[in-house]
Write a protein that binds this DNA or RNA. Structure first.
Length: 271
DNA sequence: AAGGCTCGCAACCGCTCGATT
DNA sequence: AAATCGAGCGGTTGCGAGCCT
């Protein structure tokens, strides 16, 4: 008959063994970039058994990865319908619009962009859009920046899209077919609830259309700009309270050649 | 040429939620 | 009802590539 202490010893040994085994498993788990072999294993396993039960999948497939890691690798990289390459102006426009509606609901936004992942959209927002906010000395979630997006960047995107198409064009349709973005002559209509509509208007001092009016300024000094709401789109009832930027933040920065955030272009609309 | 810096992207982490036991 | 587990989400980090000085 075992004494209590011997039972405890046995239990302790079992617990220690279990702990060691667990630690060993933890140590064996791979992290970091996926190898070609791992990708092949995962693709082959999913092809044979389908997605889901990721922890089980990881073990069964012989992958020394967590289920989470496998899931992420599959959804963000290996899945066959993943789109690669730069986001088109249409996609960028849609992201901006949907983000204004839903905020950081990346997966929800991604659901409206076939082939794009939530991770990709999140990265786009953080690296491109938030960078612009920083350069404007704005909070990326501030009303001022939202208005700057609506009043300047989104119309720019619409222009770019228009340059590539002459007729009415449906840019995007939601998965449930309840909403869509339609590009028409000089305007863009977003979703069935008419949450947003753009009308391009001619700027009085420019041959280009723009709702944005910039105050005059001296190079190297701070400047302020305001949006001329009379020349703006009807969507925004929220007053744009202006912002202050350093010219040095704009000129000579590496975004000047960017297809979306052409800051030199922005300066052309100064009074 | 080389070292430092910045940027973009892939991957990880912590948390939450819903289903199951 | 509580515990457990799988899945998903959003925030954050780390690293490689390219750029700058």
């Amino acid at each position: 008959m075992k004494t209590e202490s011997s039972c405890n010893n046995t239990n302790n040994e079992i617990q220690t063994d279990h702990k060691n085994h667990h630690q060993q498993e933890e140590q064996e788990l791979r992290r970091g970039p996926w190898t070609l072999e791992e990708d092949t294993l995962l693709i082959h396993y999913v092809a044979c058994h389908g997605e889901g039960r990721w922890n089980l999948l990881a073990k069964s497939a012989g992958l020394k990865r967590t289920g989470k890691s496998c899931r992420l690798r599959w959804l963000n990289y290996l899945k066959p319908d993943i789109k690669r390459g730069n986001l088109s102006p249409q996609e960028q426009l849609l992201i901006l619009e949907l983000h204004s509606k839903w905020g950081n609901r990346w997966s929800k936004i991604a659901a409206h962009l076939p082939g794009r992942t939530d991770n990709e959209i999140k990265n786009y927002w953080r690296t491109r859009v938030q960078k612009q906010a920083r350069q404007l000395n704005m909070e990326s979630n501030s009303q001022s920046f939202i208005d700057a997006i609506r009043c300047f960047y989104m119309p720019r995107l619409v222009e770019k899209i228009e340059q590539n198409s002459s007729d009415d064009e449906i840019i995007s349709v939601s998965p449930d077919n309840q909403s869509q973005i339609i590009l028409s002559n000089n305007s863009i209509l977003v979703d069935s609830n008419a949450s947003l509509s753009y009308q391009h208007q001619q700027h009085p001092t420019s041959s280009k259309s723009s709702p944005l009016v910039l105050d005059d300024h001296e190079p190297g000094h701070s400047c302020a700009y305001d949006v001329d709401m009379s020349a703006s789109m009807p969507l925004s009832d929220v007053p744009f309270d202006g912002c202050h930027v350093e010219r040095n933040d704009w000129i000579g920065n590496d975004m000047a050649g960017d297809t979306m955030w052409d800051l030199d272009e922005l300066w052309q609309f100064r009074k």
